[in-house]
Structures are given as structure tokens and as C-alpha cells.
Design a protein around this nucleic acid. Structure first.
Length: 108
DNA sequence: CCGTTGACCCTTC
DNA sequence: AGAAGGGCCAACG
């Protein structure tokens, strides 16, 4: 079965547990292309509803464009409700909430 | 077939 | 320390 990259990204995003956040680079790395972070964003841009794309942030922990999700304030509220901690700077505390996949099926 | 685009990341000034 | 630019990979026309 051939799954396109975006398709694979959807699967990974669905795997993100609540209270945790992942970065585009992280998803790209799990997808098999650590440099294809842009493809991850493009994939989420066309991703259908139902995907916790609000749990995907930048490498710095900052949220992506506010136009996405329908409003960055909404995303912050959702993440806070999930249990994600935010810093006074408006960024997410990746120190505590960054999703750390313990077992990668593709990575030895 | 080749060129263009994209919810990014990293290096350098 | 902050800001700017380029590079990478994959999908679509």
C-alpha cells in the first residue's frame, strides 16, 4: 500500500496524545524526512477536520499562523485545556509538553 | 517531462 | 541579541 507523505503525516498527528505537542520537524522526522518539515505544514494545511493540528507548533514552541485553526487564541485555549503549559512569552513549554515518541517503527 | 508552490528549519550578518 | 535570507523535500499543473 503506498501512502503519500501528507497521508502519513495525518496518521502521526492522530497519534499525538492530549497534553502533548509536536513540531513540524518532529512529524517530518517521524515521517522519514527530517528536512521535509514544509511538506508537513502543507499536509496539515490540506488536512481534513478531525486532526489535532492545534497540537503541532514551531520548533521554538510558538504557534503557527493565527489564520490556521481559526485563531491562535483558540489554539492556546485548546492546548491549555489539554494540559499544555504556556510561557508568559506566549510560547508553549516544550520542556514539558513536547511529545517524545518512545518507539519509532521506522527508526532503529 | 519540468517548473512552481508551500501551516518550515537552519545558518549567517 | 535580533533580524534576514536561503535551502530542503514532496505534491500538483
Amino acid at each position: 500500500m503506498e501512502e503519500t507523505f501528507p497521508q502519513k503525516i495525518y496518521q502521526l498527528v492522530k497519534t499525538i496524545p492530549s497534553g502533548k505537542v509536536a513540531t513540524y520537524g518532529q512529524l517530518a522526522l517521524l515521517a522519514g524526512s527530517p528536512r521535509a518539515s514544509r511538506i508537513v505544514g502543507a499536509a496539515l494545511a490540506k488536512a481534513p477536520a478531525g486532526l489535532p493540528c492545534h497540537r503541532v507548533l514551531y520548533r521554538d514552541g510558538s504557534l503557527c499562523c493565527q489564520q490556521a485553526f481559526g485563531g491562535k487564541e483558540v489554539q492556546r485555549r485548546l492546548l491549555e485545556k489539554e494540559g499544555v503549559l504556556f510561557l508568559p512569552d506566549g510560547r508553549v513549554n516544550l520542556r514539558q509538553c513536547l511529545w517524545q515518541p518512545a518507539d519509532n517503527p521506522w527508526n532503529p
